[in-house]
C-alpha cells in the first residue's frame, strides 16, 4: 500500500513536469476506483465518464499550477467528487443546488456471489443497517472500510471537518452496533460460527460473545 502511494507520488511529479506517459499511467491506475466511487452516487454512466474526462483534462491543462498532494488518491477523489456533484446537480431539478446531502450514496451486493450461510446472514444485517443510514454516513463507511482512508483523508475528500468525520462515523457505527444488538440472538450465532471456522476457540455461549460494555 505504502509502496503504491509512493509510486503514485512519483508518477504525479513526472506528470507535472509534462511527462505524458506518467499522466497516462495515472489515468489507468485510478480509472476503476473512480468509476466504482462514482457509481455509488449515480447510475448514470455518462455523468461518471464526463466527470472523469473533465477531471483529467483539467489536470493536464493546469499541471503547472498543481501542488504536490500528500496522497494522489485523496486529491483525485476530492476533485472527482466535486466535479461529479456539480454535474449531478446540474442534471437534475430534484436536487437542491446548495445541499450535498440530497445526493444519494448506495452500495450494492452481488446476488451471484457465493457466500456461505453465515456470511450471508451477517451481510443481510449489515445491509439492513446501512441502507437506513443517511447517505453521507454511508459514504464515510465506504471510504473507511472499502478504501481504507483515514479520518483526515475522508474529511478532505468530503470537504467536512475532521471532527464531523469522527462524529458521523461514530453515529454510523453506533447504529450498526445497536442493530447488531437487536438481532443479537441471530447475529451472535452467525459470528460464533464464523469465528469457529477461523479459530480453534471453544464455542462460547451467546451471552459472553460481546464484551460487557457492548450492551
Amino acid at each position: 500500500m505504502d509502496n503504491k502511494q509512493e509510486q503514485h507520488i512519483l508518477l504525479w511529479k513526472s506528470f507535472k513536469s509534462g511527462d505524458w506517459e506518467a499522466y497516462t499511467s495515472l489515468y489507468h491506475a485510478y480509472y476503476r476506483s473512480l468509476n466504482n466511487y462514482g457509481h455509488k452516487f449515480t447510475k448514470d454512466l455518462n455523468l461518471i465518464e464526463d466527470a472523469i474526462h473533465d477531471l483529467f483534462v483539467s489536470l493536464w491543462t493546469n499541471r503547472d499550477n498543481l501542488g504536490n498532494p500528500i496522497s494522489v488518491k485523496n486529491y483525485l477523489y476530492k476533485s472527482f467528487r466535486n466535479t461529479l456533484f456539480r454535474k449531478i446537480k446540474a442534471e437534475s431539478r430534484f436536487f437542491d443546488l446548495q445541499d450535498d446531502n440530497s445526493i444519494p450514496f448506495e452500495i450494492s451486493y452481488d446476488q451471484q456471489l457465493v457466500l456461505d450461510e453465515d456470511e450471508n446472514r451477517l451481510q443481510q444485517t449489515i445491509k439492513d443497517v446501512l441502507y437506513k443510514l443517511p447517505a453521507r454516513q454511508q459514504e464515510i463507511i465506504y471510504l473507511r472500510f472499502y478504501d481504507g482512508l483515514s479520518y483526515e483523508e475522508i474529511a478532505e475528500v468530503m470537504c467536512i471537518h475532521v471532527s464531523s468525520t469522527y462524529k458521523l462515523l461514530y453515529k454510523a457505527l453506533e447504529n450498526l452496533q445497536q442493530s447488531l444488538t437487536i438481532v443479537s440472538i441471530g447475529i451472535v450465532d452467525v459470528l460464533v460460527k464464523i469465528l469457529n471456522g477461523r479459530t480453534d476457540l471453544a464455542t462460547p455461549s451467546a451471552s459472553n460473545v460481546y464484551p460487557p460494555d457492548f450492551y
Binding site: Y31, R32, N35, N36, H39, L45, I48, E49, I107, S108, Y109, D110, L113, L115, E119, L122, Q123, I126, I141, F145, Y146, L176, L191, I194, L195, R198, T199, V209, Y210
Partner: peptide, 19 residues
C-alpha cells in the same frame, strides 16, 4: 474476529469497473 468479519463482509460488494 468480529470486527474483522464485519469489515470483510462489508467489502464483498459489487465493484463497478466500467472496463
Amino acid at each position: 474476529q468480529e470486527a474483522a468479519s464485519i469489515i470483510r463482509v462489508y467489502r464483498k460488494q459489487v465493484i463497478f469497473t466500467n472496463d
